[in-house]
Design a protein around this nucleic acid. Structure first.
Lengths: 340, 340
DNA sequence: CTGTTAGCGCTTTCAG
DNA sequence: CTGAAAGCGCTAACAG
């Protein structure tokens, strides 16, 4: 590999002149600049990324770390990633999927600093060693979702307003006259599910009511989405004919609900209203009937996360800031007033 | 930041001993090893990623580069990425989304070597500067899809067997008695579309027939998938009542076809058979009727791509190898024998 | 505006 | 099995 010295010699200038041509940190006369660039071009030279990073202590790479057990992007993540990517591109950063399998993490030979300036942490958990460890090392990060309670006021995070989202969903159904609403929530351990439950309760509370606690179901992680929606909805709908509406955690779960309804001879939305949280506008629109949704804008979430992280990287002072993203109701055709 | 020297001093050993403890390149007595590890732990030390990379000339990061215009993962890409990630994890590599906006790429200050050992190149085009440039610099890569003709025999690539896939689709419809089959193909410029067209023609040819050339339509990139399926299918179906089947490039396009059919009073599959290429088993299964597909296994593609790239990285000799992935027919309920 | 010099933190000879 | 010394390719501080 040809290096800076070679280029300097070929162009008949000093190493630091070449450095400055490429880093732009100091003005260089146009004549010299051109000479250097031509030599570099001929020799097919480009500055070495690591050598530069080593001295500047900056990589211009941000990491995204997910739960190392799953190491798999979901439907949900993809729009998020696209948002992150968009902002990275705007600001000249690269994105590293910064998850190593646990087998590797534990090996001493793999114990190195992370090659990133900062990280976006996905799926924070109530007890999260990833976050603790990074705080101990003063690494910069932004969390997606609500961080564990002890850190909530100390960290940067970006989150959907899950309380508002769930309240909007429940309130919408209540306003259509529904009273017995089945809530097919996500996995219990995540903070999202707790917030959504709170929002759901709040919608009832605002009217001075309280829903039947048994109508909030938490998902079992091992069951696929559609299956979860199908099995659970079928069970509850059969057991309780007064149920007139379902809130589903995702559009795929709603699909399962549709199937259950069809099998039970229930028509959506005449006999059963269905609403879901989701962040994909393509499929829900083509469901039969088109699915009314609370649209979570994953792309905006991702973009804000990247923006907030990069803001931290460039700030002189430590920065603590939260960004909460509102979601909105997209009325389509899966909800209707309850028939008396 | 604490460095190797600090740890060496604290542990009362030399720098190179510390180095060997962390790199595992030379055996170290258990007593010394433990002493070093304890000191490191106390000082919260981890070897610096870049300093190491700089001398080993290895990053253990692989890049994935997409068309820098779009910088956006599609539905299609996600399972692919998951496959790549799976293999990276298995082998202890990290994944960098190695796309910088064109504005940045063109800046001299951003001209550096890429911080990766090798790259996976997405969406190769007939004339692809990304590939040319990398070949000139002897960078290691594997291409996804068929590389531009001049390089086809010189590069590693992984591809779906698109000819086989399209032939299978067309043959299936022909065997059901369909003769006038509309083919809603992808964008013309990609090699995929050409291969699929070839497969489609081949199915006819094997029976000594030739389809009406006007029945193969290429997609206009600017139109969203569902829209493309809807508008095109509607137009052709109205113009030509002898059409009894459609091959759609993706499940979303098929969704558009469903809508067109519904509007024209055509029932799927009785009046119109629909089949699509796709790599998502969740949604198509829940369509009404469930969509018969040629299933492209994106995850396998991704995994093989990563495997092939890492194989190159570790090979002593240059390696040229191709991996072709077969796809299979998933019969669901959107195709039926043609009625006479 | 240009050049000289001293590291950044690690691995890698090469001697012990 | 351990240690000393020489670089990897770059930037930054300083002097001209």
């Amino acid at each position: 590999m040809t290096n800076m010295n070679d280029v300097a010699k070929a162009a008949g200038v000093s190493k630091s002149t070449v450095s400055n041509v490429f880093s732009g940190k100091r003005a260089i006369s146009e004549a010299v600049r051109r000479k250097v660039l031509i030599s570099a071009e001929q020799m097919n030279y480009r500055p070495n990324y690591f050598a530069r990073s080593m001295v500047t202590k900056e990589t211009r790479i941000i990491g995204i770390v997910m739960d190392s057990e799953k190491v798999k992007f979901s439907q949900y993540n993809i729009s998020f990633i696209n948002g992150v990517l968009k902002e990275c591109n705007r600001q000249g950063y690269r994105l590293l999927i910064d998850t190593l399998a646990d087998d590797y993490r534990r090996q001493v030979t793999q114990m190195t600093s992370e090659p990133v300036d900062g990280e976006i942490i996905l799926d924070p958990m109530a007890v999260d060693t990833r976050i603790k460890e990074r705080m101990a090392n003063r690494r910069l990060m932004t969390i997606i979702g609500k961080p564990p309670a002890p850190f909530e006021t100390k960290l940067c995070y970006v989150n959907n307003d899950n309380i508002q989202a769930a309240e909007t969903a429940a309130d919408y159904l209540l306003s259509l006259g529904h009273r017995n609403i089945l809530f097919l929530n996500a996995v219990r351990k995540h903070t999202v599910s707790q917030d959504r439950k709170a929002g759901y309760l709040q919608a009832f509370a605002k009217r001075g009511w309280e829903p039947d606690g048994r109508l909030t179901v938490f998902r079992d992680e091992s069951v696929p989405s559609v299956e979860y929606g199908y099995v659970t909805a079928k069970k509850y709908l059969q057991a309780d004919p007064t149920l007139t509406a379902v809130i589903a955690d995702t559009d795929q779960i709603a699909l399962g609900v549709y199937r259950a309804a069809a099998e039970l001879g229930l028509t959506v939305p005449e006999d059963l209203s269905v609403i879901a949280f989701n962040n994909n506008t393509v499929y829900p629109n083509e469901f039969n009937p088109p699915l009314t949704c609370i649209e979570l804008n994953g792309e905006v979430l991702g973009q804000e996360a990247a923006k907030l992280l990069i803001e931290q990287l460039q700030a002189k002072e430590p920065l603590v800031k939260q960004v909460i993203i509102q979601s909105r109701l997209a009325e389509r055709a899966s909800c209707a007033p309850v028939l008396r």
